[in-house]
């Protein structure tokens, strides 16, 4: 501050310039980010929106024609779209709930006072392991395990859990549950890690006074642990829901949306509409619907973040 006042006295002509520079400086630091986001997020989203309002875009030789919301009507009343939407919702909701339960169970286990720090460190690495692998490798891994002649079928048959060898990923009745299971396996570590951090932030006095009041372990969990973790749970679940809706690779590389569209989700449906059928208007319309769903959830996410900040 001292230098600024000095300069004002000695160099009166530069006041305006200095002030302007000061005001523009934060934008200058942000300029690479803003440029990139404008070119690769804002403009593309407006382009998709525009595509969704016209017919005959990109590959069609006929001139583009403005059709208003007709594409939306066509998509929303389409049976395939509804199938993909309900598969997506099933996939996302079951994944989020299972991620939460497994992540919390493992976090509580790793937080147990009965284990030494070294044991915890080793098992923490093992428990986070699924998260290290990329979706295409997870897809290979589970195609190996869930192959009709694979080890999962062998073990389950030997234990008498299944009557015959099952085609986990190519049976219409099993495939959606199978890919959901794979997604559950690959995604829970994200919760585990956040819950571990959250559990360490709960002050011991809370448990002490809870015990003095005669609470048992279950009551302590229900009345202290869960309420204390609530802000983390809400933001994790919302973010995970959005990410699961984004999921493309895992389904594309395990089932490709099949058999008979039984695992078709909105992202694979969009991809096929764009790159197999070349119906870019329809693909853009579905892409806008996905964006709308994610934005809707994101509003709640941002709100929960704000509340955590205050």
């Amino acid at each position: 501050m001292a230098t600024a006042t000095q300069r004002e006295i000695t160099e009166p002509a530069n006041i305006g310039w200095e002030q302007k520079k000061r005001r523009l400086l934060p934008y200058a630091y942000l300029s690479p980010t803003l440029l990139l986001l404008a070119a690769l997020t804002v403009v593309p989203i407006m382009t998709v929106f525009l595509y969704s309002l016209v017919d005959n875009v990109i590959v069609n030789p006929n001139p583009p024609e403005f059709v208003g919301l007709e594409n939306y009507e066509e998509v929303l009343t389409n049976r395939k779209f509804r199938g993909a939407l309900s598969n997506t919702m099933y996939f996302a909701i079951v994944s989020v709930v299972a991620h939460f339960i497994i992540g919390l169970a493992f976090a509580l286990l790793l937080n147990s006072r009965l284990l030494s720090a070294n044991v915890k460190a080793v098992f923490r690495v093992i428990y986070i392991l699924p998260w290290v692998f990329t979706a295409s490798i997870i897809a290979i891994l589970w195609r190996l395990l869930l192959n009709p002649h694979g080890v999962v079928n062998y073990v389950m048959l030997e234990l008498g859990l299944i009557p015959e060898l099952l085609e986990w990923l190519s049976d219409r009745k099993l495939a959606l549950n199978a890919v959901t299971f794979i997604n559950i396996w690959s995604g829970y570590p994200f919760y585990l890690v956040s819950f571990l951090a959250g559990l360490q932030g709960i002050p011991d006095d809370l448990y002490e006074s809870g015990r003095v009041d005669g609470g048992n372990a279950w009551q302590l969990f229900l009345h202290i642990t869960l309420p204390q973790l609530k802000p983390i749970i809400i933001s994790l679940a919302l973010l995970d829901f959005i990410w699961t809706i984004h999921q493309f690779t895992l389904i594309w590389m395990t089932t490709g949306g099949g058999p008979l569209r039984s695992t078709e989700v909105l992202s694979t449906y969009t991809y096929k509409a764009a790159f197999s059928s070349h119906e870019y208007s329809i693909a853009s319309t579905i892409a806008m619907v996905i964006l709308a769903i994610c934005t809707f959830v994101a509003i709640f996410y941002v709100r929960s973040q704000r509340m955590a900040d205050e």
Partner: peptide, 8 residues
Amino acid sequence: PPITLMIP
């Protein structure tokens, strides 16, 4: 969603 950006 990445799939939304992919088309443009």
